[in-house]
Simulated assay, not measured.
Amino acid sequence: MAREEERRFLRRELHDGLGPGLAAIGLRLDVIAAKAPPELAPSVAGVRDLTQSLVADVRRMVHDLRPAALDELGLVGALEDLALGPERGPDISVRTPDGPLPGLSAAVEVAAYRIVQEALTNALKHAQAREVVITASARGDRLRLQVADDGRGLPEEIREGVGSGSMRERAVELGGELVRRPRAEGGTMVEAELPL
């Protein structure tokens, strides 16, 4: 949990501090380039290229630290954003039957997002589903997530792949649990419970 809180802090610092600072340096270099004598143009262009490269590195680090959608949209909005991703394929919906979610720690937000992201990816790649329903609800001291599809279901012999293992590890790391099972009406259900 401390790691994810630190990642949230670092992301904010990089996004709100270093990133804009480097962008401002780039703008000032444009002004300098416009007024500088021609013999300085290669040097200014070199510094400008370096600055642009650093801005790109900061953007990449910000993205890798924590999904931007969580900070911009919150967990439910980020899940809805995931649902908008595929142009073709199944109908994907996000539901919060118990109303808005409470404030979540950075660790729970990231784990929930990544678990749903992987379950949705699996449904889109392998299930040949017509519909996927993502449900998020908070009951008592647990966040409950479900990703249900109406696709072809799980194979008879279920092997834990990298993605499935990653989902389970994220849940267990926080003291939660994750179950993948076939649905009685066809398709697959991924259920995760995470402590709030």
Rank of each mutant, 00 (worst) to 15 (best):
G175H: 01
G85N: 11
A41R: 15
L10T: 01
L196I: 09
L54G: 02
E4C: 01
P182G: 09
V108T: 15
A192M: 10
L174V: 02
H15F: 01
E109S: 10
L40S: 13
K125H: 13
R181H: 05
I32G: 06
I134Y: 03
L79S: 08
D141C: 02
D64G: 03
A171G: 04
A106K: 09
L120P: 00
I32Q: 10
S166I: 10
R181L: 12
A129K: 00
L101M: 12
D91K: 11
A23N: 11
P195D: 04
G176E: 01
P42F: 11
P20L: 01
G176F: 06
P195F: 04
Q117I: 00
L82K: 06
M189F: 10
L40M: 15
L143V: 06
L50A: 15
D149I: 00
G175M: 00
G74V: 05
L178Y: 02
T188F: 09
H126N: 08
G103S: 15
L174P: 12
D150C: 02
H63F: 05
D91V: 15
A112M: 03
D98R: 14
A68T: 14
Q52E: 12
E109A: 06
P38R: 12
R144F: 06
E177C: 03
L178Q: 04
G89M: 10
E169N: 11
A83I: 07
R48E: 07
A36G: 09
D149W: 00
D150T: 00
E80A: 11
V133C: 01
T96H: 04
R88H: 12
D81N: 14
G46L: 13
G89V: 08
L27R: 15
R28P: 03
T51K: 04
L10Q: 01
I134A: 04
E39C: 06
Q52S: 11
S43F: 14
A34K: 13
P86W: 08
G103L: 14
P90C: 11
V108L: 05
D150H: 00
L143P: 03
V179P: 00
L50W: 14
